[in-house]
Design a protein around this nucleic acid. Structure first.
Lengths: 345, 345
DNA sequence: GAGCCTGAATGATAACGATCAAGCAAATCG
DNA sequence: CGATTTGCTTGATCGTTATCATTCAGGCTC
């Protein structure tokens, strides 16, 4: 493995000149010398040693990605396509900006941050449930953090966040359900109370109900467990109760929507004839199920590129405003919602 | 950020003593000194600087993961649950063995290997289509490589590989189809000719046909494109041709099986009444579709742990035999294969 | 008991590869 | 001719590890 020193010797210059060329620090340097050095670097296939680089100026060019969905055990969220899509997109974004990606997946934020410190990671993208913990731990450091889909409410600090217009999305979907003639609509999420994005989505749901003159009471928020057995028990009684009179079920995420839709259909009911179902995310699942799921579309890769872009902006000391970016969502209408006859009355 | 030198000063020892404590070297040392240093390290929350470490002894403790599925463009393989599951499992395995994971996803193996060299990555796990390229590029280096699901045939070298008993799995499934009374069975994969695991699976398919006295001809291998439009065109004519007389379709992967099953059902046919379908992988999709898919089960996380285990064994200079590990598969019988009446004749 | 040896515990020092501030010639300018 | 600019080099530095040296206590030998 050839080093800067060797390159320097071969090219007949000093190591620092080589370093200057490498770092594009063209601070007064003859065309001739530069080209000579560049040629030598190329000819000898110089590959930088990041250890030396890191020690030399303290910058690692590593961006860490901390993923903490894992906590929602049982359901093995890792199998979710959102995870893979965002990881892939993040890596692409990071690499194409000349950075390296170190991945950390675990419930132990503490360890993740220790690793980040060890490697002098320049910035972190944090996804998932433990974001709150993260912000607490990071108070000592000045490593910039960008969160994806983690909303912090009542604490004064403004964290950089990339999310969706979750509330608006849920509002749009609810409004759509209403225009289709639905009057008794339920919102189902797997938090009790809901957390993170689900909160926003629920708020949008209730806001739409209220705005359209429909009664909005607590009973319309239903908790759907992430544990299979509990979920099934719930769906079973829910079925017996004839959906408690709800004609449309708005799930906070596609996964649960599809899972439930399958359950209903396995038990002799038909979607959307007997009950309308819709989701949120527009994951690939929503076109792989039948009926195809009406859902709220988001562009996952966009989250990744915005997150990395914001991080780089912070690293370049550019000012970042607004700190909270919300990406567009749109209705993706498919086949799982029925138009109520009562519409014509 | 506190350094070894500072710790040494505080503890009243030399930096090298601290280093010795940190590395748990059997460098003789009094219990007393060791404890004193350990206490100081803990009290001051010492976090190692991997830059210095890397430069000091050349070991980064980084394991790189190169993922090259991305090439199969259009279909956006990143959305596949296999990707996420294996990445998650790999990270877990790597971290819990005291290593760090650097991820690289792209079609450009060259760049990936350059990054690996730059960071003095200690080992690489390579997944996907470009494995072959990788092996070629790596001839100069001695960074150990472990491949997942990449079989190399006619080149003499023995690469370390973690895979499945793909052939056996396909054999078992085919045999199952035969025992269910199917005589005209097709095998569908997205390579022409098939590549990697699909080759093995096809071989298993044909072997089973032959072993059970059924005719096995080339016409039974069907190419199914990874491009949506082409795939749909194929399925459309395939339908018109009444499946060319095939009563069972064995897809090389769940994704295509489910996709096709949906297509058939969308066009008025029923699975398994009109045609039986089965897949390979037992991805989460196979229980999210209807009918639930009969498929060959694999335990994805096992691949990850074996891959990392083999890599660590190489790093510890232990001998690794066999170089090619194949993990168990099993039949996962669900609802997409029908028993033929002709069985009773 | 002086001299010598041994081995255990610890320290001094030189890498490792790159960066960067400061410095120094040579060329150019006013 | 002194001052400035240009073009490149010197040398210190980053945090850690490895190698070897040193110290010192204690036992052995004669």
């Amino acid at each position: 493995m050839i080093t800067i020193k060797q390159i320097a010797e071969i090219a007949g210059v000093s190591p620092s000149t080589v370093s200057h060329v490498l770092n594009g620090r063209m601070h007064k340097m003859s065309q001739e010398t530069r080209e000579k050095v560049e040629r030598t670097l190329r000819d000898h296939k110089y590959i930088s040693n990041m250890g030396g680089h890191l020690l030399g100026n303290g910058s690692s060019r590593i961006i860490g990605v901390i993923l903490t969905y894992a906590r929602r055990s049982e359901m093995n969220v890792a199998r979710d396509s959102f995870f893979s899509e965002i990881i892939g997109a993040l890596e692409n974004e990071i690499r194409s900006n000349g950075y390296y990606m170190m991945l950390y997946t675990s419930g132990d934020v503490d360890e993740g941050l220790r690793i980040a410190a060890s490697w002098k990671v320049e910035g972190l993208v944090v996804l998932g449930a433990l974001a709150h913990d993260c912000s607490r731990y990071m108070e000592g450091t000045n490593t910039p953090l960008v969160f994806i889909d983690s909303y912090f409410y009542d604490d004064g600090k403004a964290y950089v966040n990339i999310g969706l217009h979750d509330k608006k999305g849920a509002y749009m979907m609810t409004k759509y359900l209403i225009t289709q003639g639905h009057k008794r609509i339920a919102f189902l999420a797997d938090g009790n109370p809901p957390m993170g994005v689900d909160c926003e989505r629920r708020d949008g749901f209730f806001a739409a109900l209220t705005d359209h003159g429909l009664p909005a009471d607590e009973g319309q928020y239903l908790y759907i467990s992430h544990r299979c057995a509990e979920r099934e028990a719930f769906l079973s009684t829910f079925l017996e109760e004839k959906f408690r009179g709800f004609t449309a079920l708005f799930f906070a995420s596609d996964f649960y929507a599809v899972d439930s839709m399958n359950y209903f259909q396995d038990h002799g009911l038909r979607v959307p004839e007997h009950v309308s179902v819709c989701g949120f995310d527009d994951s690939i699942l929503s076109v792989q199920c039948r009926p195809k799921l009406t859902t709220v579309h988001q562009t996952v890769s966009q989250k990744a590129s915005y997150a990395v872009a914001q991080l780089l902006r912070i690293l370049r000391k550019e000012n970042i405003d607004p700190k909270i970016i919300r990406l567009k969502v749109s209705l993706q209408i498919r086949d799982s919602v029925r138009q109520m006859e009562s519409l014509n009355c």
